[in-house]
């Protein structure tokens, strides 16, 4: 058997890392530490390779200025008051029963899906269960576990993790994330969230392609 276990594990770990980054981006307002990391040599190198440009001000302004501006942008985009983008699946996916809206039917589906895997929402998490960052973090976990399975040379386990990812992507994340990203790109005033939304969309398209390929294989 020519299985390259390490390559499979690394690939899953890379996916997990991207999901982790996106989770962080959408979970809450950035901190200085986070901005520092994004400006750091390793990430900025990777970004420029991919022709991802966060704008001049991002790189030139001080960390505290960047944070201050992005906190306002985050609040305006995702929190309100007033018109904002509610980052929840149930808002973007209209349920048949009319049970849409915050904490809708989709919310419960997501919550149940996640809890069925043995995970539970942490006591400190007080958001709504189908927040975009929750769904991304769930994918981060699933891909990380997949990576662990490959490392243990446990093909069955890893494939099982993959099948759960596939189900979650198809039933949930892929159904709405591009609409969510479109809304951000449309409404963002600074490059940061527009670019991150673009990256998210880009990455999710890649994931969608990967799933298809995997299924065919």
């Amino acid at each position: 058997m020519g299985t390259n276990w390490k390559e499979l594990a690394d690939s899953a770990k890379s996916r997990s890392d991207i999901y982790g980054l996106l989770t962080r981006v959408f979970r809450e307002e950035p901190t200085e530490a986070f901005i520092k990391e994004l400006k750091g040599p390793r990430l900025s190198g990777a970004f420029s390779d991919m022709e991802i440009d966060l704008g001049e001000k991002f790189y030139n302004d001080s960390k505290s200025e960047v944070v201050e501006a992005l906190v306002l942008e985050f609040t305006r985009l995702f929190i309100g008051p007033g018109h904002h983008i509610s980052a929840h699946e149930s808002i973007f996916v209209e349920a048949d029963s009319g049970a849409g809206g915050l904490w809708g039917a989709k919310t419960v589906e997501v919550k149940k899906f996640i809890e069925t895997t043995g995970l539970e929402y942490g006591a400190g998490f007080n958001g709504i269960p189908d927040h975009v960052s929750v769904e991304l973090e769930f994918m981060q976990q699933l891909t990380e576990w997949e990576s662990n399975k490959w490392t243990q040379q446990d093909r069955k386990g890893a494939e099982y993790c993959l099948s759960v990812q596939r189900m979650f992507l198809e039933q949930h994340l892929l159904c709405w994330i591009s609409g969510f990203c479109d809304a951000i790109i449309d409404q963002a005033e600074m490059p940061f969230y527009r670019v991150m939304a673009d990256l998210t969309r880009n990455y999710m398209e890649f994931e969608q392609q990967s799933i298809k390929t995997d299924t065919a294989a």
Partner: peptide
């Protein structure tokens, strides 16, 4: 995608706890 939750739960081995443990962090 049409896979049912029961199948999902019991996907690996007899115990669904197994499924839960499978995808529990390292």
């Amino acid at each position: 995608p049409g896979i049912s939750r029961r199948n999902f739960i019991s996907g690996v081995g007899t115990a669904a706890v197994g499924a839960a443990a499978m995808v529990t962090p390292g």
